[in-house]
Amino acid sequence: MPSLRPDQLKELYRLMAFTRRVDQEAVALQRQGELTAFPPLTGQEAAQVGSAYALQRQDFAFPSYREMGVAIVRGVDLVEYLRAYRGDWNGGLYDLYAHNFGPIASSVGSHALHAVGWAMGAALDGGGKAAIVYFGEGATSEGDVHEAMNFAGIFRAPVVFFVQNNQWAISVPVARQTAAPIHRKAEAYGFPGLRIDGNDVLAVHAATAEALERARAGGGPTLIEALTYRLGAHSTADDPTRYRQAAEVEPWRAQDPLLRLAAQIDDEDFTRQVVEEVEERVRDLRTRLLSAPRAEPEEMFEFVYAEPPATLAAQREELRQWHS
């Protein structure tokens, strides 16, 4: 794999710093009553940004509900992303095909099968594309993730299973999810699995780029277990002090992926400048988010079917009359 150029390292830093700052802003917005809930990703920026940075335009990313860093790299408008957490539309308002970034998936692990199916379809179309699916260590306990990996192995689907092992599935530690190392599960499905330092953005990028390239070239799937840590709560409704000690969290703060990348770049002027840039972008985002139109009740009847059946059309009309 070619190593990243200095300007690419800086681009990664910008993306990660923006991700971190938006993440903090989203938590603040929830506390202010502007978002209904939000699952913060602070601590996982290297895993998300580094892996997504390895994607090409034609590849497709299937996120869970905590992949805002991937959304940012894919160019998704964050107003359209965050309005899902504002309660305006389940799944998000962005165009999945404009960014090859799937809808926000809250049903843990179920989207792994969609990535495999998409990858099977891409292979049928002649290859040259890969899917990447994001989930956590908790999702590896789901039957759908097993079925997805088994299908991927058998059909040699061009897909990368990117597991962010952030140590905790809400309050349940990884030791209660699996008795075996996650990356070794790949062996049972007949494809490579590797464990990487998920807080080292260069390692994440290199491993993901290699796996994606192998997939695009017809070499089949890869499982990547990125070891990382969820520094915040599972969601704004969660209180991690009920299940983990501060002493456990502290060593991970020292492994903060932003600090590590900043140390590699070693350019204080640059990092200071990024902080200012990011502040301005987040101010703009906040303004646009809060001034975006809210969902109207009638919208809930849209997009259930291509053409609404008569019963549904009648129900929509009934609601319209209630509101007029």
């Binding site: 990535a115 379809g121 759908d144």
Partner: peptide, 15 residues
């Protein structure tokens, strides 16, 4: 589950 789940992905890819 994988039959239906992969069908969803295949449909997303235009099949």
């Amino acid at each position: 589950s994988a039959i239906v789940g992969s069908a969803i992905g295949l449909a997303l890819a235009g099949w």
